[in-house]
Amino acid sequence: RLRTTITPEQLEILYEKYLLDSNPTRKMLDHIAREVGLKKRVVQVWFQNTRARERK
């Protein structure tokens, strides 16, 4: 399986959204995914991984 490459522009948007809410609802994930042009599951995993990194 190929990994999804997230561009610096997409990362910037994702981090902005993360600062507003680190645990977004399904509806918010849909909205964020459309905004950055990624699949909802990719955005969901990015948020999970970012939360895990923050806990370390």
Rank of each mutant, 00 (worst) to 15 (best):
R34Y: 14
E54L: 07
T50C: 05
P8M: 05
H31T: 14
Y15W: 12
T7Y: 04
L29G: 00
K39Q: 12
L38D: 02
L38R: 01
R34H: 08
T4V: 07
R41S: 15
W46E: 03
R51K: 12
F47Q: 00
R55D: 15
T5D: 13
L2M: 12
Q10L: 03
V42K: 06
L2V: 11
V42R: 04
N49C: 06
P24Y: 00
I6Y: 12
K17Q: 11
M28E: 11
A52P: 02
V43E: 00
R34I: 04
K27W: 06
M28D: 14
H31V: 13
E54R: 03
L38M: 08
K17L: 03
S22M: 08
E54K: 02
V43D: 01
T7P: 08
N49A: 12
R26P: 07
K40Y: 15
L38S: 01
Y18M: 01
T4I: 09
R51Y: 07
L38N: 00
Q48V: 08
W46H: 01
K17F: 03
W46D: 03
L14H: 01
T25E: 13
G37L: 02
Q48A: 14
D21P: 01
M28L: 09
Y15H: 13
N23K: 10
I6V: 06
M28R: 06
N23C: 02
R55H: 10
R26H: 11
L20Q: 07
T4M: 11
R26M: 09
K56S: 11
P8Y: 02
Y15P: 01
Q10G: 02
V36M: 08
E12N: 10
Q48N: 07
E12I: 15
T7L: 07
T25F: 05
V43R: 00
I13W: 06
E35G: 06
V36W: 03
Q44V: 08
E9P: 07
W46A: 01
R51G: 08
L38P: 01
L2F: 12
Q44S: 06
L19Q: 07
I6F: 08
L20Y: 15
V45K: 06
A52Y: 01
V36E: 02
Y15L: 12
D30N: 02
A52V: 05
H31M: 08
T4D: 15
Q48H: 08
L2E: 15
Y15K: 13
Y15Q: 13
Q48D: 15
D30T: 12
S22V: 04
A52I: 07
R3Y: 12
R1I: 14
A52G: 09
D21A: 04
W46L: 00
K56P: 09
G37V: 02
V42P: 06
L14S: 00
L19K: 08
R3G: 14
W46V: 02
R26T: 15
L14P: 02
K40F: 14
M28G: 09
N23F: 15
Y15A: 09
F47N: 00
L38Q: 02
V36I: 05
N49M: 12
I32D: 01
A33P: 03
V43Q: 01
L2S: 14
D30C: 04
L11F: 08
R26C: 14
P24I: 04
N23V: 05
R55A: 13
T5F: 05
R41M: 12
R51P: 00
Q10I: 10
P24G: 01
T4E: 13
E35Y: 04
E9A: 10
R1C: 14
H31R: 09
V45T: 11
D30A: 09
K56A: 07
Q48I: 02
G37K: 08
E54V: 03
S22D: 12
W46S: 00
E54G: 05
V42S: 05
N49S: 11
R55P: 12
V36N: 04
D30P: 03
A52D: 15
R26D: 15
E54M: 10
P8H: 04
H31A: 12
Y15F: 07
E35C: 05
E9L: 07
R1G: 15
Q48Y: 08
L38I: 11
K27L: 11
E12M: 10
V36R: 00
T7N: 07
L2C: 06
K56D: 13
W46C: 02
M28N: 04
L19V: 10
Y18K: 03
R26I: 15
Y18T: 01
D21W: 03
T4Y: 09
Y18P: 01
V43G: 00
D21N: 07
F47C: 00
R53P: 05
P24L: 03
P8R: 06
P24H: 01
T4Q: 09
L14R: 01
A52T: 05
K39R: 09
K56W: 05
